[in-house]
Design a protein around this nucleic acid. Structure first.
Lengths: 351, 351
DNA sequence: ACGTTTGGCCCAAACGTTTGGGTAACCGCG
DNA sequence: CGCGGTTACCCAAACGTTTGGGCCAAACGT
């Protein structure tokens, strides 16, 4: 039979064993360099330190949180963690949090406003020091309320209402895609634009449309459809596009997973991606490169976004003002929209 | 300017405002039905309840944890959350946890033993009530230690060393795939078997190989390669397979993401999945159905696995013995390995 | 020689709960 | 009228820290 779970070591035990007072031990073990210098003589400090890690002392976080009114906990809300984009951002957050001695709670809101509210309350009930929202909706009413309550937070992934946010420069990303398609000679293009409440899709679409307008090729209304961010959404959006007019020569789907759905829908209509029609996604998720016809997409620094989001939050917690950061995207051209690459690919398959 | 962050409401405040003692308020608000019935008269109970939610009272979890030595927190370790399989399992865990009034910490270990150790210590340092490991290695030394320390835990995703676990019946899943390929007439098959320390890959491969052996077609050593669980791994494993002999007629990749890499590698070699070679994955991740040639795979109840894992942990926390559960997988046949479906698909594209 | 500093530590309160044990007032009952 | 039993509370300790304020003795300054 295993060891019973022994009662954890406390400052008190250490103090008793050394004939010291608990406050002394506390200062020795936890005082930041600079204060608490006169807490104990250096031989005493040594004895305390030695005994502490001999016994495997670990500070009780509940007692500490209770006393200091600081939990070193932060809450993270995302639409869904099974979306690899959000999962990767969260990995960045968690990684950086650990480096700062913080722990994170993360939870799904499925983009449902009531769930966002409920989960926020529950997270706040856990007395987190701050929050990170990855699921902001552009009508920022809810976030305004949270801000008004004095809860420190930052946004990642999506921006909203001028709250401090760390996001990809989605507008620029959209422009880059447009630029690329223009270079490839496309004149009649369409967009599967994602959810209208998410700045990601809106900004990507905005940049894309602006660039085409500047090129004298404004994109008509009916060439832009909204959809969910998953494969099903991409598929449905694409079906709608195909139903409402002649075939465009290229389609920009604001999300790689949506693009997968688009590719499926095109296939169902007997269309060959890369030959009959160009497709471009966004985010450069790992599967983009591996598709039978590799997908052109825009790489967004997701992990870095998480890391920086956390760093911003730490700043806010320290009382500094939160800043908004725009991270630079990078266009990754592959066969789904590049004639030359496509030809080479086909040559290989045929050969 | 927003409201300053008001000091949260405490039992004390409620008690003072009502001329009651804090202990009375505590019992009124938190006593389980059955005890504390005689804590207060029903008009008093009413007054307390009303005031409490008028002021928006929320119990301070740190104070409670400190006093009761129970944190209602559980720690979850996974290889990586950006793997949609683990993310989905975690969603199940988190969902069920919320229903039980528990909160979860989750963190990545990247399957690196030192990281597993370090993160476990950090999680335990947060005084969680129990843990769920999704990253067990089959040499279960580390987990044995954790168990010996009296930490309550259960495993999900991968089993190891007889510790209570909730996993897919991977062996059966492997057999199902073999059965299917045998029916399709395959005689020379290969396996991309994943990491050798993960029971998932090992069991799937085991079931698959056993069934083929029973059919009188034992799979030679060189037809089984190990690899990482991601697309890169699948690609690398497949390259090795292709380099070491004649082309097999089918390849079983123990993970959908690996299969994506396999498909990419095959494409690079000018091979058409579904025509020149059959491919089967595992897990039925959302993209499997949406691939240009939809992927045959085995559906494993990932979310349910998470939910049940948490339920097992709750049982263990209640002092009952933890049980191991095997969840039933389901074969999903698609065009990547089914001649008829493939023909139909091609007919549509051509037509 | 005597006041002042400072080094090295102790004291005690406080953070917000929970919980085992009171204790008055009241009721019913014989 | 006296007594046991409720009913409706209150009391206080405890959980493990942190932190502002002591206090005593030794070292220092003049």
């Amino acid at each position: 039979m295993g060891a019973k779970k022994a009662r954890p070591v406390t400052l008190q035990m250490i103090a008793d064993q050394l004939g010291l007072h608990v406050s002394t031990v506390s200062r020795v073990l936890h005082a930041k360099p600079g204060e608490g210098l006169r807490a104990a003589s250096s031989p005493t400090v040594e004895r305390v330190r030695r005994l502490a890690d001999e016994l495997g002392y670990q500070r009780n976080p509940h007692a500490m949180s209770l006393r200091t009114q600081r939990s070193n906990l932060i809450g993270v809300l995302v639409p869904r963690l099974s979306d690899v984009v959000l999962a990767t951002i969260y990995e960045g957050i968690e990684e950086a949090a650990a480096e700062h001695g913080l722990s994170t709670f993360v939870t799904n809101t499925r983009d449902v406003p009531e769930v966002q509210r409920a989960r926020t309350e529950m997270v706040l009930g856990r007395r987190v020091d701050g929050m990170i929202f990855g699921d902001a909706h552009s009508d920022s009413g809810f976030l305004d309320e949270v801000a008004a309550r004095g809860v420190p937070f930052v946004l990642v992934n999506r921006r909203a209402g001028g709250h401090p946010a760390v996001v990809c420069d989605d507008y620029l990303g959209g422009r880059m895609v447009a630029e690329h398609l223009l270079e490839q000679g496309h004149q009649d293009v369409a967009v599967v634009a994602g959810e209208p409440y998410a700045s990601t899709g809106v900004d990507r679409t905005g940049g894309f449309a602006d660039r085409f307008r500047e090129a004298g090729l404004p994109i008509p209304e009916h060439r832009i459809v909204h959809s969910r961010f998953d494969a099903q959404g991409g598929r449905a959006g694409t079906e709608r596009l195909l139903a409402t007019g002649p075939l465009p020569s290229a389609v920009f789907v604001v999300n790689d997973f949506g693009a997968i759905g688009t590719i499926g829908a095109l296939r169902d209509h007997g269309l060959r991606v890369g030959a009959d029609i160009a497709v471009v996604g966004f985010n450069d998720t790992p599967l983009a490169a591996e598709l039978p016809v590799p997908l052109t997409t825009v790489r967004s620094p997701m992990r870095e976004m998480g890391r920086r989001g956390l760093r911003q939050l730490v700043r806010v917690l320290a009382g500094e003002p939160g800043e908004t950061e725009l991270l630079r995207p990078e266009l990754i051209v592959r066969a789904s929209s590049d004639r030359a690459q496509y030809e080479r690919l086909m040559a290989k398959v045929a050969g």
